[in-house]
Design a binder for these strands. Sequence first.
RNA 1: CGGGGUGUAGCGCAGUCCGGUUAGCGCACUGGUUUUGGGAACCAGGUGUCGGAGGUUCGAAUCCUCUCACCCCGACCA
Length: 507
Amino acid sequence: MAKKQRTAIEPTRSEDYAEWYQQIVRVAELAENSDVRGCMVIKPWGYAIWENIQKVLDKMFKAEGVKNAYFPLFIPKSYFEKEAEHVDGFAKECAVVTHSRLEDDGQGGLQVGGQLTEPYIVRPTSETIIGASFSKWVNSYRDLPLLINQWANVVRWELRTRLFLRTAEFLWQEGHTVHASRDEAEAETRLMLDVYAKFAEEYLAVPVIKGEKSEGERFPGAVATYSIEAMMQDKKALQAGTSHFLGQNFAKSSEIKYQNKDSEYEYAWTTSWGVSTRLIGALIMAHSDDNGLVLPPKIAPAHIAIIPIAKNEEDRQEILAYIEKITEGLKDKRFDGKEIIVEIDDSDATSGEKSWKWIKKGMPIRLEIGKRDMEANSVFMGRRDLDPRDKKTLRWDEFVASVDEILEDIQNNIFNKAVSFREENSVQIDNQEDFYKFFTPENKKKPEIHGGFAFAHWCGSVECEEKIKEDLKVTIRNIPFEVNAEEGKCICCGKTSKQRVVFSKSY
RNA sequence: CGGGGUGUAGCGCAGUCCGGUUAGCGCACUGGUUUUGGGAACCAGGUGUCGGAGGUUCGAAUCCUCUCACCCCGACCA
């Protein structure tokens, strides 16, 4: 029997997935808990990933004609009350501001004072406050479509939080658009979902399933909610982005009206769509392994870690000069249209330690360069998509010349791995017994990683959806757009069904 | 918010049941020496309101009460 190789992360995914996830976040220095309940501190390496997500998405939004703006953090309670379903959906998780100042209590402490006449809600999402502005901005059909996005933080007072996946405060973008017709608004909703799917697959290397949410899973106040769903390595689904068609619900509650060509007033049609720092959670759980984070090169804060290996100061200087020659060469290279970012790790740690540090942080390429490599005009390269010990020697100029192809190859490799994983754990199920078996862990006390995506027929009733949720804690992730229309029988009640939907346990 | 668990140095933990020198160990950290191609070795050193508040006691990390935070399972949740 082969000796088990030591892994950088303990426990491993199969030993304790939840703990493994937390270890990745800690060891890769992405984020940590703060003293504020449920709120995280995003550390530089994690924040740099978010900045890259922002950069790419921002460009994609702008390419669709969307412009950025910024709206207040606070929402008057009365705004919130205008849309009944909306308030129902968020009421239980709102932070409320009721006072405006702190006063000396005479005992070295502070007490709150200055009670506000109307409480403010710290935004859990901004439909209502943005709607208030939109009602002023939209007067004529000539003002439409209005395509606005804001990058912001929002607060949802979650009772159970997990770093990146669900935190009380999180960073996100929320797009809000206004249209003259239903068709146009619906098309916009779908267009932005496509943008998210493209971003998830091409940049995060996370394959996703696009589809519509069932009624029960819809955004409060929306007419239709579309999502992209990704499979994590514990075979659970993670909703990575949503796009909502809001119909005229919010236009009516916020009085967003315009005059059409016939001089008649009409309520506009609105959409909203968002992705958050949760994408970083998706990134972690889709790709990382038992040695740490694995970052797709297109979203990594840096691409290459160069680790000089020197026996003495004299060698060190020579090696650094050699490295400089390589980094000079890299300056002219582009990957995904952007500069290639190099981290030279000239710290005191030993070479092994440094190498492992960058493995854990998910750096796509490591170059270990000692005197031997220098004399041979070569570099010793390790790739994060391969085993840590699987390294090879390349001529330095060949490396520089092909670095973009190598990064591209890593990106594709990571994506393909995720696709295969999803395929291997996706099944079509046509009878109830198999369905229940698929989602039942063998060890109930300590459930092992099990299940996956089950494509099964569903009659469309809330009752069946609820029953399955009750019995198995499995929900309909979405009703995929891209699935062959075929008739079948509901996995739950046996009634006629028009198409298959994705069932899975989820985050 | 319900059930269970855990809080002791930056990280991981022992000590708590059964109160008793100066609160310990490994890793990390600082200085030094030797090292350096795969997570270095040795020597020396620093580090703690024992999560917090109150109580019991001659004496509390340890017992009691309250409280806060985190983790797991639920409930809830774009």
